[in-house]
Computed example of a mutant assay.
Amino acid sequence: MTQMTALPTASAGHLRIPATLALGVALTVRALPACHRMRTRTALARATRFLPPAPGDRVVRVHAAVTACQPRWWPGQIDCKERALATVLATAFTGHSCHLVLGARTPPAAFHAWARAADGTPAGADEAGGADHPWTAVHTTP
């Protein structure tokens, strides 16, 4: 379930370029045929596992930068899967790693994706009503 999120007005200047590049990669993955999207997202997230883990505050700042870099030309909302993958990739572009987490909840039944730092700090888990109906992680990339 996708819910509109407010775009931050400003982000850290040094995170804008990695966030924009990562969002471009995530949107390119979205253009793949549906049968290849999730496998490609998981493979890209796993490729970052050899980097040192990022602290939680860094992952949250990168996620804010990714959300702020949404291109104006993109038609509509960018889904949580693309924002989470872009957060993982932008964190990797800065020399660190974090986890891509896919989760679900009931009731109401819904699916969501977010990034999580090695210390357990989530980035993007509060979207789509995550504060009042917590998400349960179903799959986490190493």
Rank of each mutant, 00 (worst) to 15 (best):
R30Q: 15
A84P: 00
V62P: 10
P55T: 12
R41W: 14
A115W: 09
A54F: 11
G56P: 14
G95T: 03
A109M: 11
V25W: 11
A115P: 15
A34M: 07
R105C: 01
H63N: 09
D79R: 13
R16N: 09
S97K: 06
A22S: 01
H36M: 06
L32N: 05
V62S: 10
T91H: 11
V88T: 08
W73K: 02
A117L: 10
A31G: 08
V88L: 00
L51H: 08
C35S: 14
R105T: 07
V25G: 00
A110V: 06
V88A: 01
P33R: 05
R46G: 13
T28G: 12
Q70N: 04
I78P: 10
R41C: 14
D57A: 08
T106C: 03
L102K: 03
G76C: 03
G95P: 04
R105M: 02
W73Y: 13
E82M: 11
R37D: 13
E82K: 14
W74D: 12
R41N: 05
A34L: 12
G76T: 04
D57S: 07
P75N: 12
R37L: 13
P75A: 08
L100P: 05
L27P: 02
A31D: 15
F50H: 12
V29G: 07
L102W: 15
H63A: 10
R46V: 01
G103H: 01
G76S: 11
V60M: 00
A43C: 07
Q77E: 15
L102P: 00
R105D: 00
E82N: 09
F111V: 06
V66A: 05
A65G: 03
